[in-house]
Lab assay of single mutants.
Amino acid sequence: KPGPLPPNLDDLKVSELRQQLRIRGLPVSGTKTALMDRLRPFQD
């Protein structure tokens, strides 16, 4: 099960964002902004 995301996704490196997306079965392509947008729904 994926762990909790930090409140500020901007603090994560692109590689860390991609890792979080992979865990959730989401696409890992695109800019850092696109990756963050994709992860936002999973934040508490």
Rank of each mutant, 00 (worst) to 15 (best):
Q19S: 08
R24A: 02
P41R: 08
L26N: 05
P6D: 09
K1C: 08
S15F: 09
R22S: 09
M36R: 09
I23V: 11
L5G: 08
E16S: 05
R24N: 02
F42P: 12
L26G: 03
D37M: 08
N8A: 10
L5Q: 10
Q20H: 13
L21V: 05
L39T: 03
Q20G: 02
F42M: 09
Q43R: 09
L17S: 02
T31Q: 08
G30F: 01
K32T: 07
S29Y: 11
K32M: 02
K32S: 00
Q20M: 04
I23L: 12
G25K: 13
E16T: 04
R18T: 06
P27E: 09
F42T: 12
R40E: 10
L39C: 01
E16M: 03
D37C: 06
R24E: 04
D37A: 08
S15T: 13
P6Q: 08
P27H: 10
P41M: 09
L17G: 02
R18F: 05
S29F: 08
K32C: 02
K1T: 04
G30D: 04
R38E: 05
D37V: 03
N8D: 08
P7N: 15
T33K: 13
A34Y: 12
L39D: 08
L12V: 04
P41S: 13
E16K: 01
L9H: 04
S15I: 09
V28C: 15
A34S: 09
G25Q: 07
P27V: 02
D10V: 13
F42D: 11
L39W: 01
G30H: 05
R24K: 06
G30T: 00
P4F: 15
R40T: 11
R22C: 09
P6N: 07
L39K: 03
N8V: 12
Q43M: 12
E16N: 01
R22A: 10
I23P: 03
G25P: 03
F42Q: 11
I23G: 09
L26P: 02
L21T: 04
R24Y: 00
L9D: 01
F42N: 02
Q19F: 12
S15Y: 08
P2F: 15
G3R: 13
E16V: 05
P7A: 14
L12F: 13
L35M: 13
P4E: 14
T31N: 15
N8W: 00
R18W: 01
P2S: 15
D37Q: 10
T33Y: 12
P7I: 14
S15M: 09
D37R: 06
T31I: 11
L17V: 03
D10G: 15
P6Y: 06
R18H: 07
L12Q: 04
R24C: 02
Q19T: 05
P6C: 12
T33F: 10
S15A: 14
F42H: 14
R18C: 14
P41E: 14
P6T: 09
R18K: 13
T33C: 11
D44L: 04
L39M: 06
A34I: 07
V14N: 04
Q43L: 12
P41F: 08
T31K: 09
P6L: 08
K32L: 01
L17I: 03
T33R: 12
G3H: 13
G25T: 04
S29K: 11
P2L: 15
D37Y: 08
I23R: 09
L5I: 13
R40D: 03
R24Q: 02
Q19L: 09
L21K: 07
D11Q: 12
L35D: 05
D37N: 15
D10E: 15
L5H: 07
S29T: 12
I23Y: 13
T33N: 12
T31A: 14
L21R: 01
N8R: 11
P4M: 15
M36G: 02
L5Y: 09
L17C: 00
N8E: 09
D10M: 13
P6G: 10
D44R: 12
I23D: 12
Q20I: 13
L12M: 14
P7H: 15
L5M: 10
K1G: 05
L9W: 03
P4A: 13
K1W: 00
G3L: 12
L12N: 04
Q20K: 07
K1Y: 03
L39F: 02
D10Y: 13
S29P: 03
Q20T: 03
L9V: 12
V28I: 15
S15Q: 08
A34F: 00
P41C: 10
L9K: 02
V28W: 10
V28H: 08
P2I: 15
L26Q: 04
V28S: 14
R40L: 08
P27C: 09
G25I: 01
P6F: 07
R38K: 06
L5R: 05
L39I: 05
R22I: 06
L5E: 10
D11N: 12
R38L: 02
R38T: 07
D37T: 05
E16A: 07
D44P: 06
L17W: 01
V28Y: 10
G30P: 03
G30L: 01
R38M: 05
L9P: 04
P2N: 12
L39G: 04
P27D: 14
G25M: 07
L17K: 07
M36W: 00
S15W: 10
A34D: 14
P6W: 05
L39E: 04
D37H: 06
G30Q: 02
R38V: 02
D10R: 10
P7E: 15
P2D: 15
T33H: 02
L17M: 08
P6S: 11
R22K: 13
P27Y: 01
S15N: 08
F42A: 13
L21P: 04
P41W: 10
Q20A: 12
F42L: 14
D10C: 15
T31E: 12
T33E: 15
Q43A: 12
D37L: 04
R40S: 11
D44K: 15
T33W: 05
K1I: 13
P2M: 15
S29Q: 13
I23A: 14
